[in-house]
Amino acid sequence: MKFKAFLTDHGVNLLEKRFLQALDKMGKVCHLYLTRDHAIFLHNLLNGDGIQSIAQFRKEALFEDYRISSQNDDRIAFTIDLSLLHRALRSIVTIYTEFGGSHSSDAGSPTLNRLQIKLVKKLPPHSQQPMPFLTFETKGYKSAVIQDVPISKPLSRSDVLELQAALDMAQDLPRTLVQVPDMNQLQNFVDRMKHVGDVLSVSISRYGDLHLQISTSLITLGAEFRKLLVIGEQAQVPAGDDNLSAQSRTRRAIERGDAMSVQVSVKHFFKSLQCHLAKPDCAFYGIGQQGSCLTVVFQFFVPGTRQTDKSISLHCRLPVLDPGTN
Protein backbone atom coordinates (compact mmCIF):
# COMPACT_ATOMS: atom_id res chain seq x y z
CA MET A 1 0.00 0.00 0.00
CA LYS A 2 1.67 3.19 -1.18
CA PHE A 3 0.61 6.76 -1.64
CA LYS A 4 2.86 9.62 -2.60
CA ALA A 5 2.11 12.91 -4.34
CA PHE A 6 3.05 16.56 -4.46
CA LEU A 7 0.51 19.19 -3.50
CA THR A 8 0.22 21.94 -6.09
CA ASP A 9 -0.05 25.61 -5.08
CA HIS A 10 -3.67 25.52 -6.18
CA GLY A 11 -4.22 22.39 -4.11
CA VAL A 12 -2.60 23.95 -1.05
CA ASN A 13 -4.79 27.00 -1.48
CA LEU A 14 -7.95 24.95 -1.91
CA LEU A 15 -7.31 22.84 1.15
CA GLU A 16 -5.70 25.29 3.52
CA LYS A 17 -7.70 28.43 2.79
CA ARG A 18 -11.04 26.95 1.87
CA PHE A 19 -12.00 23.34 2.29
CA LEU A 20 -10.40 22.21 5.51
CA GLN A 21 -12.06 24.91 7.57
CA ALA A 22 -15.42 24.16 5.99
CA LEU A 23 -15.02 20.42 6.46
CA ASP A 24 -13.87 20.87 10.04
CA LYS A 25 -17.30 22.40 10.77
CA MET A 26 -18.96 19.22 9.52
CA GLY A 27 -17.11 17.15 12.08
CA LYS A 28 -13.62 16.85 13.52
CA VAL A 29 -12.86 13.45 12.04
CA CYS A 30 -13.55 12.26 8.51
CA HIS A 31 -12.56 9.56 6.08
CA LEU A 32 -9.98 10.42 3.48
CA TYR A 33 -10.54 8.11 0.57
CA LEU A 34 -7.91 8.03 -2.16
CA THR A 35 -8.49 6.31 -5.50
CA ARG A 36 -6.57 6.31 -8.77
CA ASP A 37 -8.27 9.53 -9.87
CA HIS A 38 -9.77 11.16 -6.82
CA ALA A 39 -9.16 12.28 -3.29
CA ILE A 40 -12.41 12.36 -1.33
CA PHE A 41 -13.16 13.67 2.16
CA LEU A 42 -16.18 11.90 3.60
CA HIS A 43 -18.15 12.63 6.76
CA ASN A 44 -20.56 10.20 8.39
CA LEU A 45 -20.95 7.89 5.42
CA LEU A 46 -20.52 4.72 7.43
CA ASN A 47 -22.20 5.78 10.63
CA GLY A 48 -25.79 6.81 10.43
CA ASP A 49 -27.20 9.88 12.01
CA GLY A 50 -24.97 12.88 11.34
CA ILE A 51 -24.81 15.19 8.38
CA GLN A 52 -23.06 13.49 5.48
CA SER A 53 -20.65 15.57 3.49
CA ILE A 54 -18.72 14.55 0.42
CA ALA A 55 -15.91 16.71 -0.91
CA GLN A 56 -14.40 15.17 -4.01
CA PHE A 57 -11.33 16.42 -5.85
CA ARG A 58 -9.94 15.10 -9.09
CA LYS A 59 -6.30 14.33 -8.44
CA GLU A 60 -5.20 17.16 -10.77
CA ALA A 61 -7.10 19.68 -8.65
CA LEU A 62 -4.77 19.08 -5.71
CA PHE A 63 -1.74 17.07 -6.75
CA GLU A 64 0.92 16.39 -9.29
CA ASP A 65 2.96 13.22 -9.63
CA TYR A 66 0.16 11.38 -7.91
CA ARG A 67 1.09 7.76 -7.21
CA ILE A 68 -1.13 5.29 -5.46
CA SER A 69 -1.06 1.56 -5.26
CA SER A 70 -2.82 -0.96 -3.09
CA GLN A 71 -3.95 -4.52 -3.38
CA ASN A 72 -7.49 -3.22 -3.19
CA ASP A 73 -7.79 -1.87 -6.71
CA ASP A 74 -5.44 1.03 -5.81
CA ARG A 75 -7.85 2.38 -3.23
CA ILE A 76 -6.83 3.54 0.23
CA ALA A 77 -9.07 4.93 2.93
CA PHE A 78 -8.44 5.96 6.52
CA THR A 79 -9.82 8.36 9.09
CA ILE A 80 -8.04 11.59 9.85
CA ASP A 81 -8.46 14.45 12.31
CA LEU A 82 -9.19 17.50 10.19
CA SER A 83 -7.95 20.05 12.71
CA LEU A 84 -4.60 18.26 12.94
CA LEU A 85 -4.41 18.04 9.18
CA HIS A 86 -5.21 21.75 8.91
CA ARG A 87 -2.60 22.67 11.52
CA ALA A 88 0.08 20.57 9.87
CA LEU A 89 -0.69 22.04 6.48
CA ARG A 90 -0.70 25.61 7.79
CA SER A 91 2.61 25.09 9.49
CA ILE A 92 4.27 23.49 6.48
CA VAL A 93 2.92 26.14 4.14
CA THR A 94 4.72 28.88 6.07
CA ILE A 95 8.04 27.13 5.39
CA TYR A 96 7.09 26.22 1.84
CA THR A 97 6.21 29.80 0.91
CA GLU A 98 9.62 31.05 2.08
CA PHE A 99 10.71 29.92 -1.33
CA GLY A 100 7.71 31.53 -2.92
CA GLY A 101 5.98 28.24 -3.51
CA SER A 102 6.94 26.13 -6.46
CA HIS A 103 7.88 29.15 -8.61
CA SER A 104 11.20 29.70 -6.94
CA SER A 105 14.58 30.11 -8.41
CA ASP A 106 18.00 29.76 -6.93
CA ALA A 107 20.85 31.76 -8.43
CA GLY A 108 19.07 32.00 -11.72
CA SER A 109 18.54 28.32 -12.21
CA PRO A 110 15.06 27.17 -11.37
CA THR A 111 14.88 24.72 -8.52
CA LEU A 112 11.64 23.06 -7.77
CA ASN A 113 10.50 23.52 -4.23
CA ARG A 114 7.82 21.00 -3.66
CA LEU A 115 5.41 19.98 -0.95
CA GLN A 116 5.31 16.26 -0.70
CA ILE A 117 2.54 14.28 0.90
CA LYS A 118 2.82 10.55 1.53
CA LEU A 119 1.62 7.69 3.65
CA VAL A 120 4.21 6.30 6.03
CA LYS A 121 4.48 3.90 8.92
CA LYS A 122 6.67 5.14 11.72
CA LEU A 123 7.58 4.18 15.21
CA PRO A 124 6.16 6.91 17.42
CA PRO A 125 8.24 7.89 20.48
CA HIS A 126 7.89 5.51 23.44
CA SER A 127 6.17 2.89 21.35
CA GLN A 128 7.07 -0.48 19.96
CA GLN A 129 4.27 -0.49 17.45
CA PRO A 130 4.70 1.36 14.13
CA MET A 131 1.80 3.69 13.45
CA PRO A 132 0.46 5.08 10.16
CA PHE A 133 0.90 8.77 9.39
CA LEU A 134 0.14 11.13 6.58
CA THR A 135 3.39 13.01 6.20
CA PHE A 136 4.07 16.42 4.69
CA GLU A 137 7.56 17.36 3.72
CA THR A 138 9.07 20.51 2.29
CA LYS A 139 12.05 22.80 2.68
CA GLY A 140 12.57 26.49 3.25
CA TYR A 141 15.72 28.66 2.98
CA LYS A 142 17.45 27.22 5.94
CA SER A 143 15.24 24.49 7.12
CA ALA A 144 13.44 21.44 5.99
CA VAL A 145 10.30 20.42 7.76
CA ILE A 146 8.31 17.27 8.15
CA GLN A 147 4.85 17.14 9.65
CA ASP A 148 3.37 13.81 10.58
CA VAL A 149 -0.38 13.68 10.95
CA PRO A 150 -1.53 10.54 12.72
CA ILE A 151 -4.22 8.62 10.88
CA SER A 152 -6.20 5.48 11.55
CA LYS A 153 -5.13 2.10 10.28
CA PRO A 154 -6.15 1.93 6.62
CA LEU A 155 -9.63 0.52 6.17
CA SER A 156 -9.91 -3.16 5.35
CA ARG A 157 -10.96 -4.30 1.91
CA SER A 158 -14.54 -4.90 3.06
CA ASP A 159 -14.73 -1.51 4.79
CA VAL A 160 -13.46 0.20 1.66
CA LEU A 161 -16.10 -1.62 -0.36
CA GLU A 162 -18.72 -0.49 2.12
CA LEU A 163 -17.44 3.08 1.91
CA GLN A 164 -17.52 2.95 -1.88
CA ALA A 165 -21.08 1.58 -1.79
CA ALA A 166 -22.17 4.34 0.58
CA LEU A 167 -20.50 6.88 -1.68
CA ASP A 168 -22.32 5.53 -4.72
CA MET A 169 -25.60 5.72 -2.81
CA ALA A 170 -24.92 9.27 -1.77
CA GLN A 171 -24.48 10.44 -5.36
CA ASP A 172 -28.24 10.38 -6.03
CA LEU A 173 -29.39 13.89 -6.79
CA PRO A 174 -32.86 15.23 -6.00
CA ARG A 175 -35.15 15.80 -8.98
CA THR A 176 -35.64 19.46 -8.17
CA LEU A 177 -32.94 21.75 -6.88
CA VAL A 178 -33.41 25.43 -6.06
CA GLN A 179 -30.58 27.90 -5.86
CA VAL A 180 -29.96 29.55 -2.49
CA PRO A 181 -30.40 33.29 -3.03
CA ASP A 182 -27.72 34.63 -0.72
CA MET A 183 -25.83 32.18 1.41
CA ASN A 184 -24.55 34.76 3.88
CA GLN A 185 -28.01 36.13 4.43
CA LEU A 186 -29.44 32.66 4.86
CA GLN A 187 -26.70 31.70 7.28
CA ASN A 188 -27.33 34.83 9.33
CA PHE A 189 -31.01 34.06 9.36
CA VAL A 190 -30.66 30.42 10.39
CA ASP A 191 -28.07 31.38 13.00
CA ARG A 192 -30.71 33.55 14.68
CA MET A 193 -33.49 31.09 14.02
CA LYS A 194 -31.75 28.30 15.91
CA HIS A 195 -32.44 30.07 19.21
CA VAL A 196 -36.15 29.59 18.65
CA GLY A 197 -36.39 25.84 18.04
CA ASP A 198 -34.52 22.65 17.12
CA VAL A 199 -36.48 21.24 14.22
CA LEU A 200 -36.62 22.95 10.88
CA SER A 201 -39.17 22.12 8.27
CA VAL A 202 -37.81 22.67 4.76
CA SER A 203 -40.14 22.77 1.77
CA ILE A 204 -38.97 23.03 -1.80
CA SER A 205 -41.29 23.45 -4.76
CA ARG A 206 -40.89 23.05 -8.50
CA TYR A 207 -41.90 26.72 -8.79
CA GLY A 208 -38.62 27.76 -7.22
CA ASP A 209 -39.83 28.32 -3.65
CA LEU A 210 -37.72 27.50 -0.62
CA HIS A 211 -39.68 27.67 2.62
CA LEU A 212 -38.06 27.22 6.03
CA GLN A 213 -40.13 27.01 9.17
CA ILE A 214 -39.62 26.30 12.83
CA SER A 215 -42.76 25.51 14.71
CA THR A 216 -43.04 24.89 18.45
CA SER A 217 -45.93 25.11 20.88
CA LEU A 218 -45.05 28.77 21.48
CA ILE A 219 -43.99 30.08 18.13
CA THR A 220 -44.01 29.55 14.41
CA LEU A 221 -41.18 31.30 12.63
CA GLY A 222 -40.56 31.01 8.96
CA ALA A 223 -38.97 32.43 5.87
CA GLU A 224 -39.97 31.97 2.30
CA PHE A 225 -37.73 32.66 -0.68
CA ARG A 226 -39.50 32.69 -4.01
CA LYS A 227 -38.70 32.77 -7.70
CA LEU A 228 -35.39 30.99 -7.21
CA LEU A 229 -33.50 29.39 -10.05
CA VAL A 230 -34.64 25.78 -10.46
CA ILE A 231 -32.50 22.93 -11.78
CA GLY A 232 -34.28 19.74 -12.76
CA GLU A 233 -38.04 19.29 -12.68
CA GLN A 234 -39.87 22.59 -12.60
CA ALA A 235 -43.42 23.86 -12.97
CA GLN A 236 -45.29 27.10 -13.62
CA VAL A 237 -46.59 28.96 -10.59
CA PRO A 238 -50.38 28.38 -10.56
CA ALA A 239 -52.50 31.51 -10.95
CA GLY A 240 -53.80 32.91 -7.69
CA ASP A 241 -50.99 31.51 -5.57
CA ASP A 242 -49.30 34.87 -5.25
CA ASN A 243 -51.91 36.24 -2.87
CA LEU A 244 -51.63 33.41 -0.37
CA SER A 245 -49.60 33.29 2.79
CA ALA A 246 -46.32 31.38 2.65
CA GLN A 247 -47.82 28.52 4.65
CA SER A 248 -50.92 28.15 2.46
CA ARG A 249 -48.86 28.38 -0.69
CA THR A 250 -46.58 25.59 0.48
CA ARG A 251 -49.49 23.45 1.63
CA ARG A 252 -51.19 23.76 -1.77
CA ALA A 253 -47.97 23.02 -3.64
CA ILE A 254 -47.50 19.85 -1.58
CA GLU A 255 -51.12 18.82 -2.22
CA ARG A 256 -50.59 19.27 -5.96
CA GLY A 257 -47.45 17.16 -5.79
CA ASP A 258 -45.33 20.13 -6.86
CA ALA A 259 -43.45 20.45 -3.59
CA MET A 260 -41.90 18.27 -0.93
CA SER A 261 -41.30 18.99 2.71
CA VAL A 262 -38.92 17.39 5.19
CA GLN A 263 -37.89 18.07 8.75
CA VAL A 264 -34.23 18.36 9.62
CA SER A 265 -32.23 19.46 12.61
CA VAL A 266 -31.65 23.23 12.65
CA LYS A 267 -28.08 22.51 13.72
CA HIS A 268 -27.51 20.29 10.69
CA PHE A 269 -28.97 22.91 8.42
CA PHE A 270 -26.73 25.56 9.92
CA LYS A 271 -23.72 23.29 9.51
CA SER A 272 -24.56 22.73 5.86
CA LEU A 273 -24.51 26.50 5.35
CA GLN A 274 -21.07 26.71 6.91
CA CYS A 275 -19.76 24.97 3.81
CA HIS A 276 -19.68 28.40 2.29
CA LEU A 277 -16.30 28.72 4.04
CA ALA A 278 -15.10 26.63 1.09
CA LYS A 279 -16.13 29.64 -1.04
CA PRO A 280 -18.47 27.93 -3.47
CA ASP A 281 -19.93 30.08 -6.21
CA CYS A 282 -23.46 28.92 -5.64
CA ALA A 283 -25.50 26.44 -3.65
CA PHE A 284 -28.64 24.45 -4.36
CA TYR A 285 -31.04 22.72 -2.00
CA GLY A 286 -33.19 19.76 -2.97
CA ILE A 287 -35.15 16.98 -1.29
CA GLY A 288 -34.22 13.38 -2.06
CA GLN A 289 -36.74 10.97 -3.50
CA GLN A 290 -39.48 9.94 -1.06
CA GLY A 291 -38.15 12.63 1.24
CA SER A 292 -35.13 10.49 2.11
CA CYS A 293 -32.83 13.41 2.88
CA LEU A 294 -32.22 17.09 2.29
CA THR A 295 -29.35 17.59 -0.12
CA VAL A 296 -27.28 20.69 -0.63
CA VAL A 297 -25.04 20.84 -3.65
CA PHE A 298 -22.29 23.43 -3.91
CA GLN A 299 -21.05 24.54 -7.26
CA PHE A 300 -17.58 25.87 -8.03
CA PHE A 301 -16.72 27.83 -11.14
CA VAL A 302 -13.47 27.74 -13.04
CA PRO A 303 -11.85 30.96 -11.76
CA GLY A 304 -12.78 33.94 -13.88
CA THR A 305 -15.60 32.14 -15.69
CA ARG A 306 -19.17 31.01 -15.09
CA GLN A 307 -18.29 27.46 -16.04
CA THR A 308 -18.56 24.71 -13.50
CA ASP A 309 -15.24 23.42 -12.30
CA LYS A 310 -15.83 19.72 -12.65
CA SER A 311 -12.65 18.80 -10.82
CA ILE A 312 -14.16 19.87 -7.47
CA SER A 313 -17.47 18.83 -6.02
CA LEU A 314 -19.00 19.27 -2.61
CA HIS A 315 -22.36 18.22 -1.37
CA CYS A 316 -24.03 17.41 1.92
CA ARG A 317 -26.94 15.21 2.83
CA LEU A 318 -28.91 16.10 5.92
CA PRO A 319 -30.70 13.24 7.64
CA VAL A 320 -34.44 13.66 7.84
CA LEU A 321 -36.07 13.58 11.24
CA ASP A 322 -39.08 11.47 11.91
CA PRO A 323 -42.04 13.91 12.03
CA GLY A 324 -43.00 12.23 15.29
CA THR A 325 -39.84 13.45 17.02
CA ASN A 326 -40.85 17.11 16.85
Partner: peptide, 11 residues
Protein backbone atom coordinates in the same frame (compact mmCIF):
# COMPACT_ATOMS: atom_id res chain seq x y z
CA UNK B 1 -39.25 42.22 -0.42
CA UNK B 2 -41.75 40.40 -2.59
CA UNK B 3 -39.53 37.40 -3.32
CA UNK B 4 -38.35 36.82 0.25
CA UNK B 5 -40.54 37.02 3.29
CA UNK B 6 -39.99 36.25 6.95
CA UNK B 7 -42.97 35.72 9.22
CA UNK B 8 -43.69 34.67 12.77
CA UNK B 9 -46.70 33.76 14.86
CA UNK B 10 -46.07 34.07 18.56
CA UNK B 11 -48.50 32.33 20.86
Amino acid sequence: SLSACTYAEIR
